[in-house]
Simulated assay, not measured.
Amino acid sequence: MVAVRAIEVRAFGGPEVLELVETPRPEPGPGEVLVRVRAAGVNPADWKVRAGIVDRLGPPPLRLGLDLSGEVEGTGEEVYGLWLSKWGAYAEYVAVAREALAPKPVNLDHAQAAALPTAVLTAWQALVNVAKVEAGQRVLIHAAAGGVGHFAVQIAKARGAYVLGTARAENHEFLRELGADELIDYTATDFADVVRGVDVAYDLIGGEYGRRTLATLKPEGVLLDAVGDDAEGDPRHHRFYVSPSGPDLVSVNELVEAGRLSVHVERTFPLEQAALAHELSETGRVRGKIVLTP
């Protein structure tokens, strides 16, 4: 048996339940490859599963981590991807479906690549595959400076849209550098009072933001909802769930390698400090992404 280090959850609770353990190296099944993890992304979904708020992976014991970047064992191929599994990427090795992986962008290091998959696919699949954003449209993005939001701004801009975003004033310069055209400081101004004529809105906050966002839309507009809001039932409301997709990541690579989509890593933590990474994630004040480095 080859032992590897991993972070496991053996009971739901606070960050303190994240336990560093030694565990047998996984054996890939049919259609899977073994990946040596060089970096694992941290997403809000991780701490929600850890706390028992989201029942996504079943009961403990389990291992968190949707995003990874690393090398395929035996070939050395550098890959990255999103993989939904009860035995996730907070580990030195993980078995992953080959179809969920894509070549790592050549101009990114592993930490940057691991920050991409869940967040960038949540932006890409909603804006490109579902809403089919096109040039000249007005696109409103809530929580524009966050992990998904800062990718959504860049993707909409790359498709020729006029991009509006809600974010704290301290993040406005950052978002302008990413291409945002118009920004609303939600702590000072109610976006529902000042924004109109929106073709596509992307709600990354949820709750009562839904119906208030409907007021900004054109009659034929689309409200994409990634977190659950109060607009359900309106024909313009579309609840969205991300899916693993190597082919979609290959499309993302074209933007990344052309310099049209960048990733902001707020902070990296070593694997054994996963609890500190979760504490930071739970503040909801992260610009871009957090990454663990085994």
Rank of each mutant, 00 (worst) to 15 (best):
Ala97Met: 12
Leu178Met: 11
Val9His: 05
Arg98Asp: 09
Leu224Cys: 08
Val195Trp: 06
Gln154Lys: 01
Val106Thr: 14
Arg236Ala: 02
Leu224Ala: 04
Asn253Phe: 00
Pro235Ala: 08
Gly197Leu: 02
Pro59His: 07
Val94Asp: 05
Ala156Ile: 11
Ala258Ser: 15
Asp234Glu: 07
Val195Asp: 13
Asp190Lys: 15
Ile290Cys: 03
Glu16Lys: 06
Leu34Ala: 04
Gln112Tyr: 04
Pro117Phe: 09
Pro247Val: 07
Val252Thr: 08
Ile155Tyr: 02
Phe174Lys: 01
Pro294Val: 08
Ala95Gly: 12
Leu276Pro: 05
Gly147Trp: 01
Ala95Glu: 10
Val120Ile: 14
Trp124Pro: 02
Glu177Ile: 04
Ile53Lys: 14
Asn43His: 09
Leu34Met: 06
Asp109Ser: 11
Ser69Ala: 15
Met1Glu: 02
Pro219Lys: 13
Ile53Phe: 13
Ala275Val: 12
Glu272Val: 12
Gly197His: 13
Glu208Lys: 14
Ala169Glu: 15
Ala143Phe: 05
Trp83Cys: 02
His238Arg: 12
Arg63Trp: 03
Asp225Trp: 02
Val79Met: 12
Leu121Gly: 12
Leu64Lys: 02
His264Leu: 04
Ala156Gln: 10
Glu27Gly: 08
Val96Pro: 05
Ala11His: 10
Pro235Trp: 00
Ile155Cys: 05
His278Arg: 11
Pro103Cys: 12
Gly14Tyr: 01
Arg168Tyr: 00
Asn129Trp: 03
Ala39Gly: 13
Asp185Phe: 02
Ala226Pro: 03
Val133Tyr: 03
Val120Cys: 13
Ile53Asp: 15
Asp193Ile: 02
Tyr202Gly: 01
Gln112Pro: 02
Leu280Phe: 00
Arg211Glu: 15
Phe240Ala: 04
Val222Asp: 05
Ala11Phe: 00
Val163Asp: 07
Leu261Arg: 00
Ala275Asp: 15
Val33Thr: 13
Glu279Cys: 07
Gly210Leu: 01
Glu78Val: 04
Thr122Val: 00
Phe240Gly: 00
Val79Tyr: 14
Val37His: 00
Gly284Thr: 10
Leu66Cys: 07
Ala258Ile: 07
Ala226Lys: 07
His264Pro: 01
Leu261Gly: 12
Leu140Glu: 09
His110Ala: 15
Asp248Glu: 14
Gly207Arg: 14
Gly147Ala: 14
Lys157Thr: 05
Leu127Ala: 05
Pro219Leu: 02
Glu92Lys: 08
Val79Ala: 10
Arg138Gln: 13
Glu257Cys: 09
Arg168Val: 03
Met1Tyr: 06
Phe12Ala: 01
Gly52Lys: 06
Val130Thr: 05
Arg56Asn: 10
Thr268Phe: 04
Ile155Trp: 04
Ala169Arg: 13
Gly52Thr: 03
Arg176Met: 06
Val2Phe: 01
Val2Arg: 14
Leu164Arg: 12
Ala91Ile: 07
Glu182Leu: 12
Ala89Met: 08
Leu175Lys: 03
Ala144Gly: 11
Gly207Leu: 00
Glu92Met: 09
Asp67Lys: 05
Glu71Ala: 13
Asp234Thr: 01
Tyr186Ala: 10
Gly147Lys: 02
Ala102Tyr: 03
Glu177Phe: 08
Gly246Gln: 12
Gly52Ala: 10
Val250Ala: 15
Gly233Glu: 13
Val163Thr: 13
Val79Thr: 14
Tyr209Pro: 01
Leu121Ser: 15
